[in-house]
């Protein structure tokens, strides 16, 4: 593994190695001194062309906990707003000696371009590109599911677990990454969304698709329900014609108190954040004991520490096989 660009690139063994490493990282985070010296003297650049708070600070926290230096680069107010190309930005970072680049970009495929173009030698980590992939989010979701629903965790996948991914699949890189990774780890994924929010070509994905949330909850009895954020910023004001009204969306696809009470006792409720309370998830569901929303944030730091460690710890030229 040289870069982390897509959850689909990960083999089952690689994914489990990341989850196991994340578990070890998480165990160190309850110590008095949380910082580990593994990446001392390495520079990690957070290259964010799209607004993000939680992913950026999660990567920043992960890099700092491993003693790396963090350089934050956001497109707003930078050379990019003056018209600099991705290539020139990349070469600038290369010249400054970046040891790893964490990139978020609104264009799908920008991380691949950065990783494969030869502009930069450092490992590239995709922190979300357009509507394409967000692999570390999928890894932290898989880690959260494994922590709650798999008894003998170390070295284990998610075999036989049923996961429902509900909501705005069309605009969601989280959904795409999760379908890929959860399938690789042996889970059965069902996407639940109104037909307008299901992307073209979904029949080639390794998952089922259902348009009825109630039917899925009753017939599929998921072990984990992952609510997706309705990405209003990618739609026009009234829902952009994807659904008639927010109220109707919420009635048919929102996780309200009634649906929450029908879940099996062990079922967990997940959300990648930020939540639209009252739209895709009710306050009862978001604040219920089965909600893992806050824990997902903590797990995100551990998973990103694992990814940075595995990509960066042994990369001196010549000795790496």
């Amino acid at each position: 593994m040289r870069h982390l660009l897509s959850a689909a690139d990960l083999s089952r063994a690689e994914a489990i190695e990341i989850l196991d490493t994340a578990a070890t990282m998480a165990a160190t985070q309850s110590r008095e001194i949380k910082k580990l010296p593994a990446l001392r003297g390495r520079a990690v650049v957070n290259l964010f062309f799209e607004d993000s708070t939680r992913t950026r600070i999660s990567f920043e926290a992960a890099a700092k906990r491993l003693s790396a230096d963090v350089i934050n680069f956001s497109a707003k107010g930078s050379s990019v707003s003056k018209g600099e190309s991705l290539k020139d930005t990349a070469q600038t970072l290369q010249a400054m000696g970046a040891d790893a680049v964490v990139i978020r970009h609104d264009a799908s495929g920008a991380p691949q371009r950065l990783a494969t173009s030869g502009w930069i030698d450092a490992p590239v980590i995709n922190a979300g590109d357009g509507k394409h992939q967000h692999p570390t989010q999928a890894l932290l979701d898989a880690y959260t599911i494994r922590r709650h629903l798999v008894a003998d965790r170390t070295g284990a996948g998610l075999d036989g677990l049923r996961v429902a991914v509900v909501g705005d699949v069309l605009h969601s890189r989280v959904a795409r990454s999760n379908v890929d990774l959860l399938h690789t780890l042996g889970a059965e994924v069902t996407l639940v969304a109104p037909p307008t929010l299901v992307p073209v070509g979904v029949e080639t994905w390794p998952c089922q698709v259902c348009y009825d949330l109630d039917a899925t909850l009753d017939e599929h009895t998921p072990d984990a329900v992952m609510m997706l954020r309705v990405q209003r910023e990618r739609m026009s004001a009234a829902g952009g014609g994807f659904f008639p009204s927010a109220a109707e969306y919420s009635r048919r696809y929102g996780l309200d108190a009634a649906r929450l009470s029908r879940l099996a006792e062990h079922t967990i409720v997940m959300h990648p954040g930020p939540m639209n309370r009252g739209l895709e998830i009710s306050a009862q569901a978001a604040d219920s004991p089965r909600s893992t929303v806050v824990e997902q944030v903590a797990n995100g730091v551990a998973v990103r520490m694992a990814v940075l460690y595995l990509l960066l710890a042994g990369t001196d030229e010549g000795t790496h096989p």
Binding site: E17, T21, T24, Y309, A313, G314, T319
Partner: peptide, 9 residues
């Protein structure tokens, strides 16, 4: 750490 392939924790 940097001279060897990544070790599992």
């Amino acid at each position: 750490l940097r001279r060897n392939p990544t070790r599992a924790l």
